[in-house]
Design a protein around this nucleic acid. Structure first.
Lengths: 294, 294
DNA sequence: CACATGTTTCTTATGTATAAAAAACGGGGG
DNA sequence: CCCCCGTTTTTTATACATAAGAAACATGTG
């Protein structure tokens, strides 16, 4: 009943590993592969068996040899490497953000399960996890209510975000020169500059950089609740902007420049400058989001 | 497969409703009872059928009459009125806070299900919901890790709590005289004074009052993420202090006095006084919690 | 004896089944 | 036509089943 997405993902990854080997070369041990692929040895063995069956490697006694370069053709398609629970997330976000989904809509576990073609258990599990994002609410012995991806959602989200982010940014002013964080900040600046230099081609890479940037700032003083809130922000932005591409290039370019200003401010250790720069970035991000909600 | 806890709870509640009626009096309509009991009409009818079967009421055509006062004996025991998912919560919190459960302990869905005598589905569902409290973490394709009810958990919790609470408390300074909130604040003071007057007998009632007090403060400017965080606080305090009774009376009395001081401060609209009083209460609550963790 | 591979056992991810509860439907009386 | 009650349909809460994956155990080889 369980899908073999872990196997398929590992299989695809193994192709990349094999491509680094020469013909006739001996493969790493199962345990080494286990670490490289990040799966259990059981799955490693299944992958190796698959490679054997395709004639890509040969398994002699206690020895596996590269026989033939695997071709990209052999890869499993991306969809088959996603666990059902991940597909449900995508399906649901799409339903919510792209289709109808006006505030107050009742969410029906059974119907979603039918629509997505999965078991109710999975939908239920997803909704239970998704609850923490503040977009749905459960009613006892009945279904869920969708509260809407509304302006007030965005405002509440940003109120918290501002509290958290200002708290972390301010802490930078007190960070000693020797802290390893400064190196990461500096690397972050480089990454931003590189993206900016090639913005026309790479503007879509910003989303991931954005998330990494804000996580770096928060990580200056770890707090599990703040980190968990960043998951909320990440998922909201990821999916929302995935279906709202308006002005994407401009939007991202503006944000990059704001990030660079904030990096300068952090390095200056000037607390009032940090405050101003950080708040202005958040205000601008909030306005951008609000404008795109309508 | 599903338990009939909703029915049993409604049945017990119905006994209380029937006790307000005279013998021979006609019962309210099914719809009216539905609202009073907060369940579906299906369940109301099941309850009525049960009452009929016991001879407590008679059902003539389109008319139900009180026949006999129900006795308390007829009540279902409390345990049978709790949904399995609620029992699992209690069981789990008990396992976590009272039994072993040191940081890093691996949590095994299957084993917990066996231990609690329930289906794995339910345990899984519970863990998924419980994840947001920041005490457990999931590892892909494997079990969960208990992060420990540690000092750092308490510190992180209180860092957020302070941010949120100070934010709300400060807003009181700008609240107009006519705001209905002031009535609620004043009622809150009365409730505290009453509890204080009878502290020796009622000190255990504080926990619930505490939660209501902090929710009232937060409600001055509703934010779903803050409200959701208060659930975290509520559950942590509820269960933790349920098994840590040391100094309970003193602890609660101190907190009541701090609440009263905060109420005075709020009413004064003096922002620096509010700040000071609020922070000092939170500091004291934090220290109390830290002391009880050891 | 350290580490690699082969084998067995246990756990998780996901589907299916079903009683309980909710919701929808429908007829009848004031 | 609105509300009440009887009936039917749909959905949720919970149990159980099973393939995939992880972990534990066993055996072999340099």
């Amino acid at each position: 009943m369980r899908t073999d997405t872990t196997f398929k993902r590992a299989f695809n990854d193994m192709i990349d590993i094999l491509r680094t080997l020469d013909l006739g070369e001996e493969l790493p041990s199962e345990n080494a592969l286990r670490t490289q692929l990040g799966v259990s040895r059981t799955t490693v063995r299944k992958v190796l068996a698959g490679m054997s069956a395709r004639g890509i490697i040969t398994s002699e006694a206690h020895k596996r040899i590269m026989r033939e370069q695997p071709r990209q053709i052999e890869r499993y398609p991306k969809e088959e490497t996603l666990a059902i629970s991940e597909q449900v997330e995508t399906n649901f976000m799409e339903w919510m953000l792209r289709d109808n989904a006006c505030p107050g809509t009742e969410i029906n576990e059974a119907e979603l399960a039918r629509r997505f073609g999965v078991a109710t258990t999975i939908v239920r599990e997803f909704l239970n996890r998704f609850q923490r994002y503040g977009l749905i609410e459960k009613r006892q012995n009945a279904g869920w209510v969708f509260k809407g991806f509304t302006a007030s959602f965005a405002l509440e989200l940003f109120e918290i975000r501002e509290m958290f982010e200002m708290r972390s940014a301010r802490l930078f002013a007190t960070l000693p020169d020797g802290s390893p964080v400064w190196k990461q900040v500096s690397a972050m600046r480089t990454a931003h500059l590189e993206l900016l230099a090639d913005i026309d081609a790479r503007f879509q890479d910003f989303s991931e950089l954005d998330s990494r940037f804000h996580r770096l700032i928060a990580a200056v003083a770890p707090n599990r609740f703040i980190e968990s809130f960043q998951d909320v922000i990440a998922i909201v932005f990821h999916y929302h902007y995935q279906w709202n591409k308006r002005d994407e290039r401009t939007r991202n370019e503006v944000a990059i420049r704001e990030h660079l200003a904030l990096i300068d401010a952090l390095e200056s250790r000037n607390i009032s400058l940090i405050d101003r720069t950080c708040r202005s970035h958040l205000t601008s991000a909030r306005e951008t989001l609000l404008r795109s909600i309508v």
